[in-house]
Design a protein around this nucleic acid. Sequence first.
DNA 1: AGTGGGCCTACCCGTTGGTATAGTGGGCTA
DNA 2: TAGCCCACTATACCAACGGGTAGGCCCACT
Lengths: 205, 205
Amino acid sequence: MPNILIADDHDLVRDTIAAYLNARDEFATFTASDLGGALKQMTGMDGIDLIILDYNMPGMNGLKGLEETRKAYPATKVILMSGVANRETANGAMARGADGFIPKSLTAGAMINAINLVLSGERYFPFEFSDPELPVSDKPEFVSLTSREMQTLEQLCIGLTNKEIARALGIQEVTVKLHVKNLLAKLGVSNRTQAALMAKQAQVF
Amino acid sequence: MPNILIADDHDLVRDTIAAYLNARDEFATFTASDLGGALKQMTGMDGIDLIILDYNMPGMNGLKGLEETRKAYPATKVILMSGVANRETANGAMARGADGFIPKSLTAGAMINAINLVLSGERYFPFEFSDPELPVSDKPEFVSLTSREMQTLEQLCIGLTNKEIARALGIQEVTVKLHVKNLLAKLGVSNRTQAALMAKQAQVF
DNA sequence: AGTGGGCCTACCCGTTGGTATAGTGGGCTA
DNA sequence: TAGCCCACTATACCAACGGGTAGGCCCACT
């Protein structure tokens, strides 16, 4: 039976989560109200399989607390939990080695599954936090591009000059300039850098 | 008890997964060996909660089969499964409305958790398929940049011209040119577009 | 006191980028 | 067949960019 340590300074949140997990008879739970207390509790016993850290909690100061925890107990799975979850912190947490991220908007059932997933060795990351939606490639701005303009844009996205694009496409530089001018207008931007950035952003290439 | 339909043309894979799920007494499973068979089976009964589609299977041709399935049964959760899983197909599947993606490299336990997660309304996407690692921001090329060069690069990444950057930073355009020239050299690129692309790629901003 | 690095400015140079105008030819459709 | 859109080419102009050289200022380090 996996041991789970829940660290959150909000008594209500912490205790209800603990109670909910306990009720399932699958987990043994322990609690702490700040990072210091959580780490101290872990020294006493070495059987903690998973620790759930609240992002806003004394001792955490940002993601530093997460890093500390990971360094001190590399074998223990760590899930970061946050109510004010924005994409940056979620990504940052995963980048710093968290095994999972659970926003407080998650349903209780989904949380259980996320926990099980992490305990089984996978990492859990809510899909809606994965970078924007991808299928924006066919936004109106892009569908209006002709095939040649698309090819030009593609080369633009590698940072090529007009001359290089001309060579790559086997046409004259003046023609490339034409295509570039037209695609800039269609995309509503004022220079090639913005066009490249926009195309990358929209995941066109 | 959720009804799960497993569609895979490999008999061994399909049947073992079905057996594994059945053994847990949490799910009722049904099977099909191609997309046509799966869709036909769903017309007969309307209680399928989740369908697991193999990516390489007669009738699927790419992600078209996924789209068909979603259109025909919008209420049914769909998980795409693939052994030859590359990032593109995984992303493409999610972009086309799949509720989950499971590579065959997943352990059986993790698969169960993924299925439960999807059934509880969340979407499951293996973290290792999320775009690269983010914390590459402190690559050697970038740490060597001075603070002013960093600020210049930041403006560059919005697609501003030298003149606009000068206004934004409150310095002369000539000075901006200097910073740009230096940061291009340090980043090892030959124009501003490449610099912006590289910075975006490395998630510096 | 001297040295070096970061920052700012200046002037000059050649190249590249962006815009305008104009003309050719191919393909598609009314 | 006339009209339209697209691709391509051409000439020309001005703005923006990339690179070089050189000088002054400030601050930290030796």
